[in-house]
């Protein structure tokens, strides 16, 4: 005897269950389809390769971008027999047109602490067929820039230290030059004093010179002789002074010039750093001038 279901909730229960299962399955399939599509599972891709000595910073799944748009991802990385690493770049089929001769891949970051990605810079030559190798570069991160700057700064500091040591060396050229200059100044003062004395003598002796012409001539001769000697001495001193200063000054100027060049390089590097470069006003490029009466 068949039991008749009287409760309205259980009428067509089997049908309801079947419809529920079908809807659930369709939902699950749709979800899987859209998730797969989102992840690019149904997108046709082509592979390109990069061979690098070190794959630090690169990971499977890393995004590959062109002008900021994602065009693929790193599919695989394998260590080759020669110790190099082969990175497989899986690129969407429609974007393979950007891969031309001269194309390079650059490992870069969004900002200094942002996510790493591989930027593709398209080349100008003929199209590259899939499964070929392209060049790979690594953009300097903050660590590399800091290390570079450190090297440059320490070089400059070393240079400055050397210059200071060179200046301070007791038996060095500069100390000697200063000593010589002091000597020259002292000699010059002595010479001036001598000249003054001579002039004083002349003044005192003028009346007697007039009185005694013979003596006067003799004294004048002596005076001329001594003046000649003084002039010779002065000449020698001046030549000596010139030689010393010429040599040292050239050295000092050269070293200063080198230090200034190094400083200029450092400033340029610092100017290129974010966020400093954001604060530097960019040079504005302007179109060709056109006036109101050209034609």
């Amino acid at each position: 005897m068949e039991i008749k279901q009287k409760d309205p909730r259980f009428i067509f229960l089997r049908g309801k269950i079947v419809i529920f299962i079908i809807v659930a399955l369709a939902g699950a399939l749709a979800f899987l389809y859209f998730a797969g599509k989102q992840r690019g599972l149904f997108t046709k891709t082509e592979n390109f390769y990069c061979v690098v000595s070190k794959a630090t910073g690169v990971y499977t799944g890393m995004s590959i971008r062109l002008s900021g748009f994602k065009i693929g991802r790193v599919q695989n990385m394998e260590l080759m027999d020669n110790g190099f690493v082969r990175i497989t770049l899986s690129v969407e089929d429609k974007h393979t047109k950007w891969f031309r001769e001269g194309t390079v891949a650059i490992l870069t970051k969004e900002g200094f602490i942002g996510e790493s990605y591989i930027e593709i810079l398209p080349g100008q030559g003929a199209l590259i067929k899939p499964n070929q190798t392209i060049k790979f570069f690594r953009q300097s991160g903050i660590e590399e820039i800091a290390a570079e700057l450190k090297g440059e700064i320490s070089e400059i500091l070393k240079g400055i230290k050397e210059t200071i040591n060179y200046v301070n060396e007791p038996q060095g050229d500069i100390k000697k030059s200063i000593h010589n200059i002091e000597k020259i100044s002292r000699n010059l003062i002595e010479t001036t004093n001598k000249l003054n004395l001579l002039l004083e003598d002349m003044k005192d002796k003028t009346p007697s010179i007039l009185a005694k012409s013979e003596n006067t001539i003799e004294e004048l001769t002596e005076l001329i002789k001594s003046l000649q000697n003084v002039a010779k001495q002065l000449n020698a001193l001046t030549t000596n002074f010139n030689e010393i200063t010429k040599k040292d000054l050239t050295l000092i100027i050269e070293q200063t010039k080198r230090s200034m060049e190094d400083l200029d390089e450092i400033l340029k590097s610092i100017k290129g750093l974010w966020p400093i470069r954001e604060g530097i006003k960019k040079h504005e490029i302007k179109p060709l001038e056109a006036d109101s009466y050209e034609k």
Binding site: T108, G111, G114, W274
Partner: peptide, 22 residues
């Protein structure tokens, strides 16, 4: 904020190249 910062899409050497060509 730092994380949201996007590096400019321009490559400095290309910008310089364009400026020099202009």
């Amino acid at each position: 904020l730092q994380g949201c910062y996007r590096a400019p899409m321009e490559e400095p050497y290309r910008v310089k190249e364009i400026e020099s060509l202009i």
